[in-house]
Amino acid sequence: MEVEGKIKVIGETKEYGKNGFRKREVVITTEEQYPQFLNIEFVQDKTQLVDNFSVGENVKIGINLRGREWVSPQGETKYFNSIQGWRIERLDQSQNQDASIPPADQFEPVDDLNEEDPEDDLPF
């Protein structure tokens, strides 16, 4: 799966436990009618993927949805979900525009056409 949005927050890499589990969180804001704030986790060696990105950049992130079950000491079962990132890339601003129409300054000016031009052999 992939999600697109603008980077709102880039967290610091944090280390947990004796085994050195590393996690870094990135929050993106989606661009839709009702924008969503998605907290995406990058773990272990994927934490460094975020190093060259900045707040405000438009990105596309490859994600996996993760779910966990936890049973409390009282026997109550709870479920947790997370979004885990495994790839991140910049979205070029020009991708959001229609690439099939060149900018106006790339068209040649058209001379005024004379309707009675003898070289005009079009039937309409």
Rank of each mutant, 00 (worst) to 15 (best):
M1N: 08
M1H: 11
M1W: 15
E2V: 05
E2A: 04
E4Y: 03
K8A: 07
V9D: 11
V9R: 09
G11I: 01
E12L: 09
E15Q: 12
Y16V: 11
Y16H: 08
Y16G: 05
G17A: 05
G17E: 04
N19A: 09
G20Y: 04
G20W: 05
K23Q: 02
R24M: 00
V26A: 00
I28Q: 01
T30H: 07
E31R: 14
Y34N: 05
P35M: 13
P35G: 10
Q36D: 12
F37Y: 14
F37R: 12
L38M: 09
N39W: 03
F42Q: 01
F42V: 04
V43T: 13
Q44K: 15
K46G: 00
K46Y: 11
V50T: 04
V50P: 01
V50A: 00
D51F: 06
N52S: 15
E57T: 06
N58L: 09
I61H: 02
I63K: 05
I63L: 08
I63V: 07
L65C: 06
L65Y: 14
E69M: 10
W70F: 13
V71C: 08
P73I: 11
Q74R: 13
Q74D: 11
E76T: 14
E76Y: 06
T77C: 06
Y79K: 06
F80D: 11
N81L: 06
S82W: 03
Q84F: 01
G85H: 01
G85T: 02
W86F: 11
R87K: 15
R87G: 01
I88A: 01
I88C: 03
R90Q: 10
R90E: 15
D92A: 13
Q93P: 12
Q93R: 15
Q93E: 05
N96A: 06
Q97S: 08
Q97G: 02
A99R: 09
A99N: 12
S100T: 15
I101H: 12
I101Y: 09
P102E: 03
P103V: 04
A104Y: 00
D105C: 03
Q106P: 00
E108P: 03
P109C: 00
V110S: 06
V110K: 04
L113N: 08
L113H: 08
L113F: 10
E115F: 06
E115M: 09
E115T: 13
E115S: 07
E116C: 09
E116Q: 10
E116F: 07
E119F: 15
D120F: 05
D120N: 14
P123G: 08
F124R: 06
